[in-house]
Write a protein that binds this DNA or RNA. Structure first.
Lengths: 186, 186
DNA sequence: TGGGTCATGTAACCTGTTACATGATTAG
DNA sequence: CTAATCATGTAACAGGTTACATGACCCA
């Protein structure tokens, strides 16, 4: 459900090709959503069939033609309908393949598990660092240079803040876990 | 990938029907994984085709026949292979439909967003409470009454600990977000 | 008499991933 | 010469969700 509405949302900022949308997803929103080109083209097709988008083809010299999408009135309505349903509870989901392994780890190799947790700490640290840089970019206006985005920034920063909280929680948990596992090994 | 291996893992503790496996998933492992019966029956079928499981049918008076699954040597090998690949980094995923909405929320209703965040805090608090009770159950041996599970407990508690860390992070983030949103409203 | 539990599933659909295909331009 | 970038997609598969179907028993 979310990817489609994310596409509608991004097209609210301006017309774009599928290629550009993929870039946006995997650069700006990347830390909480990513998408394959294949999926984006498929959804773009479906959204156009439903009348939420329309497209025109632009010829380019020396490059393949580009199909530029723009959002319709119906698309904007659908986007706003989705946006204003702030029932987060039903989306609470702690599903995690890592915990699935942890659950059964009595039967696993404790040394390997500890190394896995150490790498997990590293990955989360990189992520935390990347988000601090992104926050800086937003403040510096290097991400969104136009005043048009001024009011968006608070929400973008709240997204990043959550990433910071979660990755810190992950790091603390992994550190505590490693300690506990080293104790029982002795 | 994880559900199948979770099924193999649970069947390592003893033979079970699809129905019982569904219950296990949605009661014990529920806070970090849930599964529909339809999905479990399908995967059980696939696992049997691959030779990781075998099943026998038990006739019951007054009830439909039950198909009891047990894990094979191949199934145990596959499970252990999966378990000992502790490369958590590749599974790092902060994907979240809530953040997708947050990202675009300049265009949304701030009042509704705040109410959504308040409910989110409630849901996370219930979750946190439920996990404290589960932890107590594990300590009390009411969950797993047999000594057989004694060495598993440490890992189960680490799973719960992560849930506690994450839900606390969610609560703190939501509280901070509400404050910030109320400030900009003024 | 109605709802919940035990027990089995099927069907359709949606979402996401991986791999492949084409073909030109540009930068190192 | 090679890799990356621009730009378009298709195909197959894996995983997850929702709805439906059957039928008997048990409890209030």
């Amino acid at each position: 459900m979310s990817l489609k509405h994310g596409l509608l949302g991004l097209l609210g900022y301006g017309d774009m090709t599928g290629y550009e949308l993929t870039k946006y997803f995997n650069e700006s929103l990347n830390f909480f959503w990513s998408a394959q080109t294949s999926q984006i083209y498929r959804d773009l097709n479906n959204l156009e069939k439903k009348g939420f988008l329309k497209s025109k083809i632009e010829h380019q010299e020396g490059k393949p033609d580009k199909r530029i999408y723009s959002i319709t009135k119906e698309g904007k309505d659908e986007f706003l309908k989705w946006l204003n349903d702030y029932d987060f509870g039903k989306e609470l989901d702690y599903r995690d393949p890592m915990l699935m392994k942890m659950f059964f780890s009595k039967q696993g190799d404790t040394e390997k598990l500890i190394r896995g947790l150490e790498d997990f700490i590293k990955d989360n640290s990189y992520f935390l660092e990347a988000m601090k840089i992104t926050k800086q970019h937003i403040n510096d206006n290097s991400y969104a240079e136009h005043e048009q985005y001024e009011d968006d920034k608070i929400y973008w920063k709240l997204c990043i803040l959550r990433g910071e909280y979660l990755s810190k929680a992950n790091i603390e948990w992994a550190e505590e876990s490693i300690q506990l596992l080293k104790e029982i090994k002795r």
